[in-house]
C-alpha cells in the first residue's frame, strides 16, 4: 500500500483503523478542494447560486472533521500507537484542522461572491484573485497528493511555493490600496476583493501547514518555524 507499511500490523483491525482515518481525511480533502474551486468560480462569475452551494457544503465538512477526529481519539485510546503509527494519527488530526480552516476561508470567499453579485462587481482585482487562487489550489492539490503518497520531498517543494503566494498577495494588496485611493467610491466593493485575497493567502498558509505535517509523518522531523532543508 505505501512506504510506511501501515497495513502490516499483526492486528488487522489496527490496519483497518489506520486506513480508515487516512482515506476519510483524503476524502474530506477532496471535498475542501472542490469547495475552494467553486468559491473562486462563484466570485469570478458573480454566481450566487454556486456560492450558496459552497456554504451548504461547509456543515458537511465540519461534521466530517468531528467524526474523523473522534476516530483518531478512539484509536489512541484503544491502540496506543507508537512511532510512525503515532505520527500518522497526529498528522491526520492536525491536517483535519487545517482542512476545516481552509473550508472556512472558502466559505468567506463565497460570502464575498454573494455580496459582489448583489452590489455589482468590483472594478479591479479579479486577475489577482484568479492568479493567487490558481496557485493556492495547486498547492492544496499537491499537498493532498503528497499525503496520499507519503512523499516528503514533494511536500517540501510544495511548501516553498507559499513564499511566492505571500509576495503576490502583498503586491496585489498594494495595487488595490492604490486604486481605492484613486477612486474612493469603489472602496466598499474593493474591500470585498481584498478580503477574498486575504482568504486565499490563508489557504496557502494552511496548505503549507499540511506539507509540514507530511514531513513530520514520513521523516519524523518537525520543520515548523524553520527552513525545511
Amino acid at each position: 500500500m505505501d512506504n510506511l507499511n501501515l497495513d502490516q500490523h499483526i492486528s488487522r483491525q489496527f490496519n483497518d483503523d489506520l486506513e480508515e482515518i487516512r482515506t476519510s481525511m483524503l476524502e474530506m480533502g477532496g471535498l475542501v478542494e472542490r469547495q475552494v474551486a467553486d468559491a473562486i468560480r462563484a466570485l469570478e462569475d458573480a454566481d450566487s447560486t454556486l456560492a450558496d452551494k459552497v456554504m451548504e457544503v461547509e456543515s458537511r465538512i465540519d461534521s466530517m472533521e468531528m467524526d474523523i477526529d473522534d476516530t483518531c481519539t478512539t484509536l489512541i485510546a484503544r491502540r496506543q500507537p507508537a512511532a510512525s503509527d503515532l505520527r500518522m494519527v497526529l498528522a491526520v488530526s492536525k491536517t483535519l484542522r487545517d482542512l476545516e480552516r481552509i473550508g472556512d476561508e472558502a466559505n468567506k470567499i463565497a460570502k464575498m461572491a454573494i455580496l459582489l453579485s448583489e452590489q455589482g462587481s468590483a472594478p479591479r482585482g479579479y486577475t489577482e484573485v484568479r492568479h493567487i487562487g490558481n496557485c493556492v489550489r495547486k498547492m492544496l492539490n499537491d499537498a493532498l497528493d503528497a499525503f496520499s503518497r507519503f512523499d516528503a520531498e514533494s511536500a517540501i517543494a510544495t511548501m516553498k511555493e507559499d513564499r511566492q503566494v505571500d509576495m503576490d498577495y502583498k503586491s496585489a494588496l498594494r495595487e488595490m490600496i492604490t486604486y481605492m485611493m484613486e477612486d474612493p467610491r469603489s472602496i466598499s466593493r474593493s474591500m470585498n476583493i481584498l478580503w477574498t485575497l486575504r482568504s486565499l493567502e490563508r489557504i496557502g498558509d494552511h496548505a503549507k501547514n499540511i506539507c509540514e505535517h507530511i514531513v513530520y509523518l514520513v521523516q519524523g522531523r518537525d520543520i515548523r518555524h524553520r527552513d525545511p532543508d
Binding site: N5, H9, F14, A83, S84, L86, R87, G220
Partner: peptide, 19 residues
Amino acid sequence: VFTKPQHELTESYITGRFG
C-alpha cells in the same frame, strides 16, 4: 525510540508489526 525509531526492526516491533 517511541516517536521516531531509527531502525526498521525497532519500528516494526514497537508498532506491533511482529513480536
